[in-house]
Nucleic acid binder design. Sequence first.
DNA 1: GTAACGATCCTC
DNA 2: AGGATCGTTACA
Length: 169
Amino acid sequence: MSRLDHTFFRRDVLEVAPALLGKRLVRRYDDGREESFLITETEAYRGEEDLACHASKGKTPRTATMYLPGGVLYIYLIYGMYWMMNIVTGTEEDPQAVLIRGIEGFDGPGKLTRRLSIDKSFNAEDLVTSSRIWLEETGLLPSYTTSPRIGVDYAGEKWKNMPWRFKVK
DNA sequence: GTAACGATCCTC
DNA sequence: AGGATCGTTACA
């Protein structure tokens, strides 16, 4: 199977987020067991100007990962108990990321990371070279719907209404 | 130090 | 509608 490389990730997040739908997320565990799921739902967070994006407050120890070149994971803890898995996109010093909200059978960003045993140790993991998590091409181009992002009402009228949530029909 | 706040999920 | 639960951040 062909693994997605840097050219796929180093594009604008608004191209990559919908393009991730139907791609295969592969997880290889320490015991050699391997399993994979198709991605079903994503959300785009785009640059310091996007008030819903963590990088809107500038570069901090936590958000520094988002400033890396596209193709690495940005992992953070929310509400004290759920790890969120994001894929960094775009070029270096342009903070963008795609939140993975759903995979086959597991809707919800907190549920899928728990299912795949993803935690802080995956922060800045390179999807192009990692031996424990990566993405593969499937040739699928699922039709999808767009809608506003979840849980970002604090971001103000303009940004909370951006239709940057992408979900397979 | 200290306090407030979440890109959530589950149970009532 | 509300609680769990803690890293990150800003500010004193």
